[in-house]
């Protein structure tokens, strides 16, 4: 599974980086994003959902969050 570390990247750059990473994988593939607490974890999942990707879950790790999602159809 692809993991993209977006920790230390602020909004909206983290979302744009997530979009670029999603361009590299096929629809249906599962990908993980590491997100900082605060604005990133509040905004990035919601924005990715509105782009048509399927959010699978959110796990809290040490000081950050792991968002798992399945890439939607183009």
């Amino acid at each position: 599974m692809t993991t993209v570390d977006l920790r230390g990247v602020t909004c909206p750059t983290n979302f744009v980086k997530a979009k670029l990473a999603l361009e590299m994988v096929d629809a249906g593939e599962v990908i993980e994003f590491l997100l900082d607490d605060g604005e990133p974890v509040k905004n990035v999942p919601r924005s990715l959902k509105s782009e048509g990707h399927k959010l699978l879950g959110l796990k809290e790790a040490e000081g950050y969050y792991i968002l798992t999602l399945e890439k939607g159809e183009e």
Partner: peptide
């Protein structure tokens, strides 16, 4: 609900 907790995180 899949219990992901995103709503809890989002609710300020």
């Amino acid at each position: 609900c899949i219990g992901c907790g995103l709503c809890d995180k989002s609710c300020t």
